[in-house]
Amino acid sequence: MNIHGDITDELSGDGMIIIDGRDVALVPYSLTLSPEAGPLIAEGSISGPEPLMRRVKQASTVKLALEDGPVVTIRCEGGRSGTRWVKALKT
């Protein structure tokens, strides 16, 4: 699937968080696609219980399986109270 070829600039839904190779939980996400092709695909937020969000921040490898799309690597950029700002990168 070519994300940059889609009509919409926004991606949202429920995706599976994968921490260190293990499926953990479904979390809602809201991402805005990057306007340029490159390693950064999108940026936005994910939400979930604070203990899970702490694990996301501390894990060495975190991926997000989008609801109707590919699996992307995410990097936590901050956040609190059950919401984390993330960048989605090519895997």
Rank of each mutant, 00 (worst) to 15 (best):
residue 13 G to P: 04
residue 7 I to N: 15
residue 64 L to W: 01
residue 82 G to R: 03
residue 24 V to Q: 03
residue 33 L to M: 06
residue 88 A to G: 04
residue 79 G to A: 07
residue 71 V to T: 06
residue 9 D to S: 14
residue 34 S to H: 00
residue 16 M to N: 09
residue 3 I to C: 01
residue 52 L to M: 08
residue 54 R to Q: 13
residue 50 E to L: 07
residue 71 V to I: 06
residue 42 A to H: 06
residue 77 E to Q: 11
residue 13 G to M: 02
residue 42 A to C: 05
residue 37 A to V: 10
residue 38 G to N: 04
residue 46 I to V: 05
residue 6 D to C: 12
residue 42 A to F: 05
residue 40 L to A: 09
residue 45 S to R: 14
residue 79 G to D: 06
residue 66 L to A: 02
residue 50 E to F: 05
residue 47 S to P: 03
residue 26 L to P: 05
residue 52 L to F: 05
residue 57 K to N: 11
residue 22 R to H: 15
residue 31 L to K: 03
residue 75 R to L: 04
residue 85 W to I: 11
residue 49 P to T: 13
residue 41 I to L: 01
residue 37 A to H: 08
residue 73 T to M: 13
residue 82 G to I: 02
residue 45 S to A: 13
residue 52 L to D: 02
residue 79 G to K: 08
residue 86 V to I: 08
residue 59 A to V: 08
residue 90 K to R: 13
residue 49 P to L: 14
residue 38 G to K: 03
residue 77 E to W: 09
residue 14 D to L: 13
residue 64 L to S: 01
residue 35 P to W: 01
residue 25 A to F: 00
residue 26 L to Y: 07
residue 55 R to K: 13
residue 16 M to P: 04
residue 72 V to W: 05
residue 77 E to V: 08
residue 75 R to Q: 04
residue 21 G to H: 06
residue 9 D to Q: 15
residue 24 V to P: 01
residue 28 P to W: 06
residue 66 L to S: 01
residue 60 S to V: 12
residue 24 V to M: 04
residue 56 V to E: 00
residue 3 I to S: 02
residue 81 S to A: 12
residue 78 G to L: 01
residue 75 R to Y: 03
residue 85 W to R: 11
residue 51 P to D: 05
residue 46 I to K: 03
residue 62 V to M: 00
residue 7 I to D: 15
residue 22 R to L: 14
residue 80 R to K: 11
residue 78 G to I: 02
residue 40 L to V: 08
residue 91 T to C: 11
residue 21 G to Q: 05
residue 54 R to M: 09
residue 36 E to L: 11
residue 17 I to A: 00
residue 90 K to V: 13
residue 66 L to C: 01
residue 29 Y to M: 03
residue 40 L to K: 10
residue 48 G to N: 07
residue 19 I to P: 01
residue 68 D to M: 10
